[in-house]
Design a protein around this nucleic acid. Structure first.
Lengths: 311, 311
DNA sequence: CGCGACGCTGCTCATATGAGCAGAAATGCG
DNA sequence: CGCATTTCTGCTCATATGAGCAGCGTCGCG
């Protein structure tokens, strides 16, 4: 008799009909132990497929693999939904869940900005924590007056966490190094930066080095600048700082014009949570994760698989 | 806390990570009984989906429902595959499996013909039974010389079952009633018909009343005849006899010109196995099954659901 | 043909699980 | 607010299940 057919029959009786292995054995004329073994094989061979269908489902095995491989504190991986544009939403919700459950709860949370983090902020429920202080970690998009900008992002997170937001009153990138130095030495700005650097938790995203970058959109850089950065090896930016595949700053000159927590401070943070979604960010995600720039990563299944692929 | 989210976490730990309910309880800070209940709910709500992915999988719940509803001896329902043209193949294989497992094994098997039964014959393995006598139950398509005709069908089934085929040397439908009567009273033909009527098992399909009918294709009827039959309420043919939704012969005149086992004999058969696949045959399938013309049905999921739908 | 190695079978036993139930908590109703 | 009713919780206990193991059959190889 065909062993595989037997597996199918056994699986049907077990899962569809919820019969006991004893009953199945009697029915098919085989011993109950054989039934158990067939059931096991059926699962191994993928004849029986068990999946968890839910927007909040996760991929624990990938999470474990990421933690292991990149020596992380934690990882959250959500399954890729059927519809592409839901990825960001799911990752954001997962990040929100993670933040809510984070222990010890963050007292001071430094945040960067971007579409991804805006989505995270929106996904956070009212009362997700108590008395958190939210500090902006890098220069803002205050030029941009529409709702959902950097200020409102920090505000939302703080408000829903029963705390207050501290904004960084500075552009992301200055035109001249001297201006940047002047701003950074301003007492108010310096205080905010110091507080961000001292935050117990840092929440950030990264952007790819392409023309769609928020820096271009907000006028801090031109499309040509990006092309030039990419030519010099930049794969994307973290907290406004463009880095190459090895995690090094690509253009020190540009870096000196950028206002915000720097990479060394990011590395030194007690907890740094990196949120990323979508194929466009695979390269920069790899850079961040494999160079120890984050201790916790929140992402989607396809990014996770890409990260785990042997080089 | 969100109960549903908890179900998802529990389901992940149980199914993806194969942890025990005890461990899960400890991990999530809930009692092991709660874990069990959440798991149950997760399955009820469809958060956990268990499916059996295999060409030979079946739908036992639908089978049970069919047996119950139509007072059948048995039913076999195969899942609808992703690709439409595989339906016939799967149903045929299921029918072959059923025949092979049939107890008591058929000694005399009367068969009709058609694409469906040809597929069943092809799906039967060598040695599917021992010493079976296969008799043609209705007039053949002997006009048609290509392989896979009625004669070869019966031959294949008989050969692979270690027995011999007895062919019915007559057209399916005669032009005149008198000719039909003459043929039927011929000693040879009468003997075959008697043997078919006395068979312990009858295996047959049905065809819809549309222009693609095998009767038109083989020149027994014209497309116009079919239109006229349909106008008079015919939904299709069984053993060459056109019947309406109530299972009655539509045109007694035509019926008298048809050579083969008649409906009363079909109803009286100890075991009559009806094989049908595809949406085109939903109507005739309903007629056959709901009028007691078969005691066993083999079909696909979509047909089964259609049959079970409340009128 | 004989021998060793391997895989398969059906067992024992420890453990995991589900049914059923009594008390606790929540809810609804006057 | 008080009481009845329902829902939920964590228990006991019977049952189902999986791990581990000895015996048996089968196969391959010399």
């Amino acid at each position: 008799m065909d062993e595989e057919l037997l597996m199918v029959r056994v699986a049907e009786l077990s899962y569809d009909e919820s019969k006991t292995q004893d009953e199945i054995g009697a029915l098919l004329g085989i011993s109950r132990w054989k039934v158990g073994r067939l059931l096991l094989q059926a699962r191994e061979r993928g004849i029986v497929r068990i999946e968890i269908v839910h927007p909040r489902a996760r991929r624990l095995s990938l999470e474990r693999a990421l933690v292991e491989r990149f020596d992380l504190r934690d990882a959250v991986v959500v399954p890729a939904p059927d519809e592409k544009d839901l990825v960001l939403e799911r990752v954001a919700r997962a990040a929100a869940d993670m933040l809510t459950a984070l222990r010890p709860a963050p007292r001071t949370l430094a945040v960067s900005w971007g579409r991804t983090l805006t989505a995270v902020a929106d996904a956070l429920p009212e009362g997700w924590t108590h008395r958190v202080t939210v500090v902006q970690a890098n220069g803002g998009v205050s030029l941009n007056r529409r709702a959902g900008g950097a200020a409102s992002l920090a505000g939302t997170i703080a408000h829903r966490g029963g705390g207050q937001a501290i904004l960084l009153p500075s552009p992301a990138i200055l035109e001249r190094v001297e201006t940047a130095q002047a701003i950074v030495s301003d007492r108010t700005v310096a205080a905010v930066l110091a507080q961000a650097a001292a935050a117990d938790t840092l929440l950030f995203t990264a952007g790819p080095a392409d023309a769609g970058s928020a820096h271009v959109e907000n006028g801090y850089l031109t499309a040509d600048d990006i092309v030039e950065l990419a030519r010099r090896g930049a794969v994307g930016d973290v907290l406004g700082r463009y880095i190459d595949a090895d995690g090094n700053v690509v253009d020190p000159q540009l870096d000196a014009r950028t206002v915000g927590v720097d990479l060394a401070q990011l590395r030194a943070a007690p907890r740094s949570i990196f949120v990323t979604a979508g194929a466009a960010k695979h390269d920069i995600a790899r850079t961040v994760v494999s160079n120890g720039l984050c201790s916790i990563v929140v992402t989607d299944e396809s990014t996770a698989r890409e990260l785990l692929e042997e080089t």
